[in-house]
Design a protein around this nucleic acid. Structure first.
Lengths: 138, 138
DNA sequence: GATAATCCTTCCAATGATTGGAAGGTCAAG
DNA sequence: CTTGACCTTCCAATCATTGGAAGGATTATC
């Protein structure tokens, strides 16, 4: 298969396939007779699908490299894989909590804003540092 | 104040202050006598704090530019500010949902993995596309 | 007034994953 | 041998931020 076909088959763009090759995430593809045109096999599709799925789950390229190594190591301990996954879960938790915190604040601000034609805006007051409604509750 | 002092006072790094100036988010600071060394006032600290807080709440630079414009426009409608905020909330919701979806999948995978010294690993099986436990329930 | 320490200046590069485009080479079909 | 679709490499941009280099300005001290 050419790179376009393998891209369609795997869901990884041709651009990204070349990029993954350039950074060593995947092996350099063999070339057709004259040396141009990368050639791929079904096995490569398999690898790229693995990468695609890992990426969709939020793993970085570096982490995917680890996952691939473990995947291809028949003597791996499943604990090693699991620890990567649990670390990633913790990672996601952190990011989710950050986003939730932002969201809560914004919802609080929006709730107190009339949202009409008048200029009075507690949102801007808050952003500018003015004490508003959530001081020390004193 | 020099840029270092205003950076400490506002919580925005000197690097970022220069960057914000370069992209036009803030006005170019006046320079000290000889033309070197940017000089800042308390008002600038105020602006930078506004930016800092907006950034912490997840607004992009482009969005902060809008917020600043509204902030400085005394005839703004609070509805305009509120719509920026509600759009950002929707934005956060989308990202949170994506992360939660990843997390759920990873937790599901981790739950089914023994995490011991043996190589059998449903996580890798799933990543590689093997049908595992969550097929069509047949 | 020399010197050292600290600050500032500009410019360039890297991050991480991805996309875009330009300029040109290759292949398959007609 | 042309056409068109595909491929190649290389360079640049994204977004916000950080890092460093090389050098100039200011301040404090002697």
């Amino acid at each position: 298969m050419n790179i376009g076909e393998v891209a369609r088959a795997s869901g990884v763009s041709a651009k990204m396939i070349r990029y993954y090759e350039s950074i060593g995430l995947i092996e350099a593809a063999k070339r057709k007779g004259s040396g141009a045109y990368r050639v791929y096999s079904d096995g490569d599709v398999h690898v790229l699908r693995f990468i695609r799925r890992s990426r969709d789950l939020g793993f970085t390229v570096a982490e995917i490299a680890n996952l691939l190594r473990l995947w291809q190591d028949r003597r791996r301990a499943s604990a090693d894989v699991k620890s990567l996954v649990t670390a990633k879960i913790a990672d996601l938790d952190t990011r989710i909590e950050e986003l939730l915190s932002m969201k809560r604040t914004l919802e609080h601000l929006a709730m107190n804003c009339n949202g009409d034609h008048r200029p009075d805006c507690p949102i801007l007051d808050d952003l500018s540092g003015k004490a508003c409604c959530h001081g020390n509750g004193g």
